[in-house]
Amino acid sequence: MTPLEYLAAVLVIGGTFFGLVATVGLLRLPGLYARLHAASKSDTLGSVLAVAGGAVVLGVGTESLKLGFLLVFLLLTSPTAAHAIARSGQEQGVEPAGNVDAPWIDEEEGDA
C-alpha cells in the first residue's frame, strides 16, 4: 500500500466511526433536538471523511472534482436540513427532552 492509500484508509475508517457515532447517538440521545445533533454533526463528518477518502484514492481529476463538489454540498445541506427539521419541530411545539426551558412553549401559552 502506498502512503496515499493509507491516508485514504484512515479517512474511510474515520468516516465509518463517525457514521457509527451518529447511529448510536440517534438511538441513545433523548428527544428530537438532541437526536438531531447526532444526525447533523456526526453524520456530516462521517460522510465528508468517507468521500474525502474516495477523493484521495482517485487522485487529481474529474472524479475527485465531483467528489469535491459533493463535499461542499454535504457541508451546506446537512445543517440546513437539520435546521429545517428542528424548526418544524419547534413550530409543532415539540418539547426538548430533559429539564429544559423552551421559549416557544411559554410563547404559545402566552399567545393563546
Partner: peptide, 16 residues
Amino acid sequence: LANSITLTPGTLTVDV
C-alpha cells in the same frame, strides 16, 4: 452563521 452553529460543538440552530 446558522449552519456554522449547527456544525460546531454541541449546538444546533433551531430557529432564526
